[in-house]
């Protein structure tokens, strides 16, 4: 696998677009997932995904292979997403809809067969998405990388260019803030939600 990616990289550095296309197909899902959780909007995330790979193509000669390609792509993706957020701030906030809520709602509706379950899921994930949106960009980015994407602290520190201790502090702060803002939702889940072991089993099953 690594050798294949290395070969693809060498060919892409030589200008082989087909090889680069293979790399795009290999990494675009995780880049899109990172983008959509940071930006909260599927359309913007798709644009950010494309821009990430376009900027990576132009900077491919500077990738020296000391880190994983995915780590390098994550860093470009986060820079692109932060640019998108800065651009978004220039608009009138009252005119900007909360796209994350809409996208999560539509997605939950599409997956849940039971309307009651879908409604609960919509409300739950809408609250979660709104709480994520309220986090500062640094905390939100760290939560997306560590808690959602599952990157280890070392990899997240490489992506964000900060010490691992900073990653740990951000994760801890984000947990405190999210728990504070979602206290009522989490309180409702205390009796209904499955325990950690059941959740782990469900995770393995999926």
């Amino acid at each position: 696998m690594e050798e294949t990616e290395q070969r693809l990289l060498e060919r892409a550095r030589g200008g082989d677009r087909i090889a680069y296309g293979a790399l795009v197909r290999r990494h675009q899902r995780r880049i899109f997932a990172c983008s959509v959780h940071i930006l909260g909007d599927a359309a913007e995330a798709e644009d950010a995904t494309q821009e990430t790979f376009l900027r990576a193509w132009k900077a491919l000669a500077r990738f020296d292979g000391r880190s994983e390609l995915s780590t390098w792509l994550y860093r470009i993706c986060i820079n692109v997403c932060l640019n998108t957020i800065r651009r978004r701030r220039r608009l009138d906030p009252s005119d900007v809809l909360d796209p994350s809520v809409a996208s999560v709602e539509s997605e939950s509706r599409a997956q849940a067969p039971d309307p009651a379950v879908a409604a609960d899921g919509n409300r739950l994930f809408a609250r979660l998405a709104a709480a994520l949106e309220e986090l500062s960009p640094s905390l939100r980015t760290t939560v997306v990388l560590v808690l959602i994407q599952g990157l280890p602290h070392r990899a997240a520190a490489q992506v964000l260019g900060c010490p691992e201790g900073t990653i740990a502090w951000r994760v801890h702060e984000a947990r405190k803030l999210l728990r504070e803002r979602l206290a009522d939702v989490l309180h409702e889940l205390r009796d209904s939600a499955p325990g950690p072991q059941a959740r782990a089993n469900a995770r393995e099953a999926t």
Binding site: V36, Q111, L124, F125, V143, L147, I148, R190, A193, R199
Partner: peptide, 12 residues
């Protein structure tokens, strides 16, 4: 529980 919710946050 919060971590579990974050891990199951759906994607489009």
């Amino acid at each position: 529980r919060l971590q579990g919710l974050l891990e199951s946050l759906p994607l489009p």
